[in-house]
Amino acid sequence: MGKNQKRRGPLQALQFSAIGVTNAVVDIGALNLLLFLFPSEERVTLTLFNTIAYALAVTNSYIWNVFITFRDSAKGSTRQRLVFIIQGLISLGINNAVFLGFNALFQALGVPTWIRQNLAKGLAMLASFTASFFMMKYFVFKDFNRRYPGREQSSRKENQ
Rank of each mutant, 00 (worst) to 15 (best):
L82P: 02
N50Q: 09
F67I: 10
K75P: 04
I63R: 08
G110R: 04
F16W: 06
F102V: 15
N96Y: 02
V25S: 06
Y62Q: 10
N32I: 05
A13L: 15
T22H: 04
L92S: 04
V98E: 00
T78Q: 13
F70D: 02
I28T: 12
G76D: 08
L33H: 04
I115Q: 08
S73F: 11
V44T: 13
G29M: 06
A24R: 08
D27Q: 09
L100T: 11
Y54P: 02
L35M: 12
G101L: 12
R81H: 12
G101F: 07
Q87M: 14
W64T: 14
N23C: 15
L14K: 13
W64E: 06
W64P: 10
L56Q: 05
L100S: 07
G29K: 07
W114T: 12
A97M: 13
P112C: 12
V98T: 07
W114S: 10
L31F: 03
V44R: 06
P39N: 02
V111R: 02
P39G: 02
L119M: 13
V83K: 03
F102P: 03
S73P: 12
S40T: 12
S17R: 09
G101A: 15
L119K: 00
L34M: 07
F67M: 10
I52S: 13
L56P: 00
V98W: 00
V21Y: 02
Q87E: 15
P39T: 07
G20V: 13
N96H: 05
V111P: 02
A108K: 13
Q107C: 09
S61L: 07
L89Y: 03
T22I: 14
S40H: 01
V58T: 01
S73Q: 00
